[in-house]
Amino acid sequence: MGSRYWTELWRCRELLVFLTWRDIVVRYKQTTFGLAWVWVRPLMTMLVFTVVFGNFAKMPSDGLPYSVFVLIAVLPWQFFSNSFSGVANSMNDNISIISKIYFPRLILPISVVIVCFVDTLIAAVILVVLMLWFGCSPNWHIVFTPLFLLLMFVFSLGSGLLLVNLSVRYHDVRYIIPFFLQFAMYISPVGFSISIVPANWRLLYDMNPLVGLIEGFRWALGGSAMSLDITAVAVTCVLSVVFIFLGIYSFRRTEATFVDLI
């Protein structure tokens, strides 16, 4: 049963491509600014954090221009936030299709994450522009970026999948997710550096898997001034693996009942 499912999933790869393409195309058709929205959101978030934390609160940015320092974190954060809620709601959002046609349902959450991934790659253009503008040059750590992208992908998909079953059963999960994400953003080092966290709290702080992800990107792209928080990255890696396995397991177990429950 297990292997048959994965062969079937592989056979449906074209459907995956089309669903991903649909989500991207539709968004750019529906909105006047289209593509520009992918840049506007991280730019605004970056501006607010830079002005409030960088200029007013004068927080440290470990030697980088504050805006670059923040933007490196905003991009993976927004990837996580969008794909987490997208994956969690992926069944409810596609009820018209899943109640009529069979295909491995796992295609839908994967498609959501790919769409977010494409968005992030497009949004990364502003990061490149900003880094060129400020003359920041990354060092050899940059070769680790794909690894952190993979980590980001796996972690977001896994954690989102854990929630699918709940969101299918309880429709108010949709409304709880934004609260949760807002909370998560404030406890994650998106707008500030982890160096402001007191040393005796540091270990506890590292337990937040988003710390390892964000710090990983800062280390890979931020140049030689950045040090790597090994504990945090290890926590993220372990949790990503746990989440993706648990997520797929819970998804597979309950997949067949989704149609009856929504």
């Binding site: 649909r22 195309v25 539709v26 058709k29 529906q30 018209s96 299709i97 009529k100 046609i101 069979y102």
Partner: peptide
């Protein structure tokens, strides 16, 4: 199966 014609049609496309 054709439980319904036009499954997945998107109005914007």
């Amino acid at each position: 199966s054709l439980l319904e014609v036009g499954t997945g049609f998107h109005p914007e496309l």
